[in-house]
Structures are given as C-alpha cells and as structure tokens.
C-alpha cells in the first residue's frame, strides 16, 4: 500500500459517500444517471467475486464490502425509493454500447483465459467508461448540482491517483499491469473536460453550467 493508492481509495470512498449524502439530504436523484450507477454496480460485482475466496487484508475486505453494498444501495435508491425524481428522459445513453465492446475486449485482450480473469478484465474495461452515461446526461441537461460536481471530481481523482500508484509500484516494486494502467488512463482522460469546468467554475463558487 502506498500513499497514492490510499488517498485514491479515500477519494473513491468520499465520492460514494457524497453521492449517498446528496440523495439522502435532497431526497432526490435529479441529475443522476441511473445507468452509470448500474454500470458501477456491475464493475464491483464482477471485480469482487473473489471477496470470500481471496483474503488480502481487513482493509481490502471492508472496502470491497462497502463499495459493493453502497453501489447496490445507490441503484436501489434511484430506481425504487426516489424513482419519482429520476430524470429518465435525459439518462438515455445506450448501456449496451459499453457492455458489449467491454465484454468482447475482455475475451480477446486479457492476461489469462479463465472466467475469473475475464470477469476481472471486463470490470477494468467497464469501469473506464462507466461514467459516460453520467457525463452524457450532464451534457444534455447542460448543468449539474454542485454536490454532484464534487462527486464527479472525487470519482475522477481516485483513478488519477491510482495512475500515480501504478507508477510508484512500477519503479519500486517492479509490478505492472498494462491492462489496468491503459484503462485507468482512458478513465481519467474522460474526466479532463469535466475537471476543467470544475476548476474554472465550481471552485469559483459558480454552478457547473456547460456552455450552451
């Protein structure tokens, strides 16, 4: 464990907590893409299948349980409890355009052709693009609530910090996983446009408005 990865995990945790707080306090899921949350849930389910078979550390297990339960809870809140506030008309990104290419790529490009490894690889590829429905929804509505912007900033930062973690592990531990690193770079790059808007607007106290 290094500082980059720890701070990265804490950013990830903060993002999920921020999202739950937003939903709970505003009693609304307005502006949130249920599809992205479904994809994140799928990422955790396919990645943490070894939750009970492969014990790494108490920290690892606790975080996996939290990520799994919170992502499932978020999907539940969006599609049942606060369904009335779900903006389905703007959450129209076709999930199959992400699921099918990621599944095909995971079958073709992986480290080992075994069910667990292919599912892990699928979750890595899917996580890289899972935010697209949310970013697409913001581009359609043209704005995002401030707390949703903070959520996205924390979520984007987590994988950016993981890239630093992979650099660190490459130089000091001679560990390197090209699949995780390439997908992580793609994932972080997808947030760049949002990072620019967040830093130039939200941090200036303005609401996140996309140029019409």
């Amino acid at each position: 464990m290094n500082a980059f990865r720890l701070v990265g995990d804490l950013c990830h945790l903060a993002a999920i907590v921020l999202l739950l707080l937003k939903i709970w306090k505003s009693r609304s899921v307005a502006g949130l893409s249920g599809k992205s949350q479904i994809l994140f849930g799928l990422v955790f389910v396919t990645r943490y299948l070894d939750l009970v078979t492969n014990f790494v550390s108490p920290y690892n297990t606790i975080m996996k349980v939290f990520f799994l339960s919170s992502s499932i809870a978020t999907v539940y809140l969006i599609y049942t409890k606060f369904k009335a506030t779900y903006d389905g008309n703007h959450d129209t990104f076709r999930m199959e355009f992400l699921l099918i290419p990621c599944a095909l790529l995971a079958i073709v490009v992986n480290h080992e052709f075994s069910p667990m490894e292919i599912l892990w690889t699928f979750s890595i590829y899917l996580e890289a693009v899972a935010i697209l429905p949310q970013l697409f929804m913001i581009s359609k509505t043209g704005e995002a609530e401030t707390i949703t912007s903070h959520y996205l900033f924390a979520l984007g930062s987590y994988r950016g910090l993981y890239i630093m973690n992979w650099l660190y592990r490459y130089y000091y531990e001679n560990n390197f996983d090209v699949i995780a690193v390439v997908a992580g770079i793609v994932q972080t790059v997808l947030y760049c446009d949002f990072f620019y808007l967040y830093i130039t607007k939200v941090l200036q106290g303005k609401k996140l408005q996309l140029p019409a």
Binding site: D9, D50, V56, N60, M63, K64, E173, N174, N175, A180
Partner: peptide, 10 residues
C-alpha cells in the same frame, strides 16, 4: 513482471 499482484488493489 508480475501482473497478478494488482489483484491486491480495489
């Protein structure tokens, strides 16, 4: 280069 070790990450 051992890529399996990345499985200790979240």
């Amino acid at each position: 280069q051992d890529n399996r070790s990345m499985k200790d990450e979240l």
